[in-house]
Simulated scan of single mutants.
Amino acid sequence: MTLTDSLVSYTFAITLLTLTPGLDTALILRTAASEGSKKAFQAAMGVNAGCMIWGAIVALGLGALLTASELAFNVLKWVGAAYLCWLGLQMLFKPRNQMAADSAADAPLKKSSNGFIKGLFGNVLNPKVGVFYVTFLPQFVASGYPVAAYTFGLAMIHVLIGTVWSSTMIAATRPLSRWLKRPAVVRNMDRLTGLVFVAFAVRLATSKR
């Protein structure tokens, strides 16, 4: 994959994923509505910090693993393709009607008055973020570039897009909150994201090192 192909396809996919309402979106909107814009922005920065931590962990691990082993590359490729396909099919055929609800793991965080801590631990303690990064990021590494550095760079693009989207949500909390909570919006975003995930699963499965 060339550098241009990598960046364009990844940016499209990760932007769509970022716009799809999920736990992070719910946290930021809820914080903005109940505690104000400042706390919501802190929560958004906490979410971004969590993504950076996951990005660093995944980048270092993948960089060492994929450089050392052809078998590891192939195993990760097929596991990643299967996982993305499963996620995509779930979103296509069982789309949600509402934004993700709070998980049990989030309960202790509600008592914290620090928006950054809420966002950080809500993200870091969510293993799905790490699993997603492990399965999603490797397929976008451009040929001829160091795996670890490039993977972390992709995570930083996610952080940048997330910052822009979070700032937009916070600046327009009420209208965006109402729009994002509409069942039709949630369903259609899930289906569109699911379709993209299935397409990338096929792409990953047919890719070569």
Rank of each mutant, 00 (worst) to 15 (best):
L154M: 04
T20I: 12
L87R: 03
P138Y: 14
L76Y: 11
T15L: 06
V58P: 10
G115A: 07
L27E: 15
Y83A: 03
V124S: 04
N114P: 11
L7H: 03
V124N: 04
V131L: 15
K110S: 15
W165N: 12
W78E: 01
I28V: 12
L76R: 10
Y133G: 00
G88E: 05
P138N: 14
Y133W: 14
V75N: 04
Q139R: 06
F41R: 00
A184T: 14
L3Q: 03
A148W: 15
T15H: 02
T168W: 14
P108S: 12
Y145G: 00
I117N: 05
G119T: 05
L192Q: 06
T151H: 11
A155Y: 07
V75R: 14
T135R: 08
F41C: 01
A172P: 10
V198L: 00
G162H: 10
A43W: 15
P127I: 01
A40T: 04
V58L: 12
P127K: 05
T18D: 07
F93H: 00
V185P: 02
G55H: 08
F140A: 06
Y83F: 11
S103T: 15
F121H: 09
V159A: 01
I170P: 11
G61E: 14
L192N: 02
V164L: 11
T151Y: 15
N74R: 04
S37D: 07
P183N: 06
P21N: 02
Q98A: 10
R174I: 11
I53L: 09
A43S: 12
T67M: 05
S34V: 01
T168C: 10
L19R: 06
Q90T: 01
L29D: 08
I53C: 02
K38Y: 05
P183G: 07
S69L: 12
T2R: 01
V79E: 04
W86G: 00
V79G: 00
N48C: 13
A64H: 15
L195G: 12
V147R: 08
T31V: 14
G162W: 15
A148K: 08
G115I: 07
P127H: 04
A68M: 11
L137G: 10
T163G: 02
T18Q: 12
L62S: 12
T163P: 01
F93N: 00
Y150D: 00
K38F: 06
Y133I: 11
N123Q: 03
L71R: 09
K181N: 15
M99Y: 14
P95K: 07
L87S: 05
P175Y: 05
F136K: 03
L60E: 09
M99P: 05
R178M: 14
W165Q: 05
V131S: 06
K39C: 02
R96V: 03
S112D: 06
C85G: 03
R182Y: 12
E35R: 01
T163V: 13
V164P: 10
S6C: 03
R203L: 06
P146W: 06
P21G: 04
I53T: 09
Q90G: 09
